[in-house]
């Protein structure tokens, strides 16, 4: 291993950030309390003062902070996003995670020395797309979509250099090309792309029905969990539907990504950073997952064997998958 691997961890609150740093995160990503970031949930995220304190805490403990402004600017109302970029730089961000090409252009011109990462929301999944962002805007790292195989990640990483690659290794799984998925917009009028929320809680309801839990999004019944059956997130892509007379999780099973067994291979092909999903999760999740992955990364460096059963209890549907990295889906 020539470059030290970076463990990139989520934080939805200042307490979550301190937990991630204390648990061994090399860097933490977070966002402001508005629609500029793709986890715009109630009670979550940082105001300006909290962000400055968070950056100071991370730096004092040897960690970095990346601020996500990874939704797409609204026509006629781009100031919110540009102000977010300026405030993130002023707060001491080590990197900005951006998706909108216009905002990338603004950030590069307004802050020429600022390190920029390309969000997974930009869906840059070809050598040409990555090269464009790298050569035109000096993007230092691209977060790759969760729809690629290990071999595809390998080829992209080779083409992207000197731009680094970052891949998701644990947490919620999007089967769709992120930044382009319209399912949430269709059902609720809101989306992670524009307003920072997928299947927003304002449009989600649960009700008990004869011992079963029924989940609805935007008035559509998407799932019925029978008594004792593990539940999942109330997103349309993880609902159970009838098609051709058969009921199934048509788009995606409610399972979490867990690519821990692939870490050595991903490191070997040159991936720089391993990302844990879950800014909406609690301190218990952050602490457990970050500690576990940090130990694995340290163990890899020391040539030790790894065993990670403890992560299963935190996974959606209580099950996990290596996702698209090994194409075993239906």
């Amino acid at each position: 291993m020539t470059t030290p691997l970076e463990l990139v961890c989520p934080a939805g609150t200042p307490a979550g950030l301190r937990t991630a740093v204390d648990a061994g995160a090399h860097s933490v990503y977070c966002g402001f309390r508005d629609e500029t970031n793709a986890r715009n949930f109630p009670g979550l995220n940082f105001d300006r003062a909290e962000m400055r304190e968070a950056a100071a805490y991370a730096h004092a403990h040897g960690a970095k902070i990346a601020i996500a402004l990874n939704t797409f600017m609204r026509a006629g109302s781009t100031d919110l996003w540009k102000r977010g970029v300026d405030d993130a730089v002023a707060a001491g961000a080590d990197a900005l995670i951006l998706a909108d090409v216009g905002l990338v252009d603004y950030a590069r011109k307004a802050h020429p020395k600022q390190r920029l990462h390309l969000s997974v929301q930009a869906a840059a999944a070809t050598p040409e797309a990555i090269a464009f962002y790298r050569d035109r805007f000096g993007i230092a790292r691209v977060v790759l979509p969760r729809v690629l195989t290990v071999e595809e990640v390998s080829r992209l990483t080779a083409h992207a250099a000197p731009c680094e690659t970052e891949v998701f290794v644990f947490g919620g799984l999007c089967v769709m090309a992120e930044g382009r998925c319209m399912l949430s917009s269709y059902a609720t009028g809101k989306s992670p792309n524009m307003t920072g929320v997928c299947s927003p809680p304002s449009h989600v309801t649960y009700r008990e029905d004869r011992d079963a839990l029924v989940a609805c999004v935007g008035g559509f019944t998407i799932e019925r969990f029978e008594r004792g059956e593990p539940a999942g997130y109330p997103t349309l892509c993880k609902g159970r539907f009838v098609a051709d007379g058969t009921m199934s999780h048509l788009f995606e099973d409610p399972v979490s990504l867990n690519a821990v067994t692939l870490l050595p291979r991903l490191a070997e092909i040159g991936v720089t950073a391993f990302k844990i999903e879950g800014r909406q999760r609690g301190r218990a999740y952050i602490s457990t997952v970050v500690r576990a992955f940090r130990k694995v990364i340290d163990a890899m460096a020391a040539g030790k064997k790894i065993d990670l059963d403890e992560l299963r209890g935190l996974t959606e549907g209580q099950r996990d998958t290596v996702g698209a990295y090994k194409k075993t889906w239906r």
């Binding site: 979550l44 989600v204 539940a231 997130y233 609690g282 959606e316 549907g317």
Partner: peptide, 30 residues
């Protein structure tokens, strides 16, 4: 405990205003 994990395992249930529940959960977390 992580609230989402408790929800997945059905150890915790919620009803009513989902948005308000999330806000409360996140405020308690912080």
């Amino acid at each position: 405990y992580d609230g989402d994990a408790l929800f997945f395992s059905r150890d915790l249930s919620i009803e009513g205003d989902t948005e308000a529940v999330l806000a409360l959960r996140n405020a308690i977390e912080n």
